[in-house]
Simulated assay, not measured.
Amino acid sequence: MTNPSLQHLFFIIIGPSGSGKTKVAEAVLPKDYKVISHTTRLKRLGEQGGIDYYFETQEQFQNLIQSNALAEYDTYNGQKYGVGIDELLRKTSKHCAYDVLTFQGFEAIEKLFKPMVVPIFLDVSKENVMTRLQERGDLPEIIKERSALYDQEIKNKEKIIHYPQHFIIDANQPFDCVVKSLAHIVEECIKKHD
């Protein structure tokens, strides 16, 4: 069975933890353009089902996997996360959409929906990531964990350059410059595809 194709572009923002992926994406793209992921993690204070995530039990998530309802899924900190195919099709039916995902998540979705998937990597130095985490007030053990994770995540930059339609943004720049860079990429890509 072949998957239906996306009607509009799907931008996937990738980068090391602490690169500012989520904040930059939210500053450029409207909130209702975000593809809502499914997760088994507990709802945090202020979060709402269907707005922040689709909160699932382990059993519900397993059913999504078994019914091939997910375009991609992964486990992070012992909790499952995944992007639903129906959600992706719905969000891209009238306009572009976006999500902040891992490189592995991008690979899985790209296999299903190329050429409508655009990876954008936020490249940031380890020093800047550590500084940002300290300024944010993260605990020393979290900073240490993110430091180890950085070395793995930055390697994805070398993998992403093998995809014909990829972009790399220097996220060491001031926030407003990174936002302008992303906005320009999104605008140019949409122009080419409309």
Rank of each mutant, 00 (worst) to 15 (best):
S67P: 10
Y76Q: 07
G20H: 15
G84Q: 12
K114M: 02
Q104L: 10
E145Q: 09
G18P: 13
F103I: 03
R136A: 03
A27L: 13
R136D: 02
S93W: 04
Q60I: 01
I142S: 06
I13M: 09
V28I: 11
V100D: 09
I65G: 05
V100I: 14
R41G: 04
A69G: 05
L133H: 05
N63S: 08
F55Y: 15
L133K: 06
I142E: 10
T39Y: 06
L9G: 02
F113Q: 05
L88K: 01
Y76E: 08
L6M: 03
Y76H: 08
A71F: 01
F11L: 09
A69M: 11
I109P: 10
E59K: 09
D32L: 10
H38A: 13
L112M: 14
T75I: 14
P30M: 10
N68S: 15
L88N: 00
P115E: 02
G49A: 13
K80D: 03
G15H: 08
Q79V: 00
I36L: 12
A71Y: 02
I143P: 06
F121T: 03
T22C: 02
I14Y: 03
I12D: 07
G18E: 10
S67E: 13
K91Y: 06
K114F: 02
K144E: 14
F121N: 02
R90A: 14
I51H: 06
R90D: 06
T39E: 08
F61L: 00
L6F: 04
T57Q: 12
M130G: 01
G50R: 04
S93Y: 06
T102G: 07
L88M: 12
E59M: 04
Q48C: 05
L88E: 00
R132W: 09
A69R: 14
E47A: 05
E127L: 11
E72A: 15
V35K: 01
K144N: 08
Y53I: 09
A27N: 13
E59I: 08
K23Q: 13
E145G: 01
I36C: 12
H95V: 05
L9I: 02
R132T: 07
M130T: 14
I12K: 07
A71V: 03
Q134V: 07
T131C: 07
F61V: 04
D32Q: 13
D138M: 09
V24I: 15
F55S: 03
P30I: 10
A27G: 14
L6P: 06
T39K: 05
E56I: 06
D99R: 00
R132Y: 10
S19Y: 12
D86A: 13
S19K: 15
N68A: 14
I109G: 11
F61A: 01
T39N: 09
P115A: 00
R132S: 09
V129E: 04
Q104Y: 10
Q58M: 13
V124R: 02
E26D: 09
I143K: 01
Q48N: 10
V117P: 00
L112G: 03
I143T: 04
D123L: 02
Q62A: 08
Q134C: 02
Q104I: 08
Y33H: 15
S125N: 08
E72G: 04
L6A: 03
T92G: 12
V28A: 10
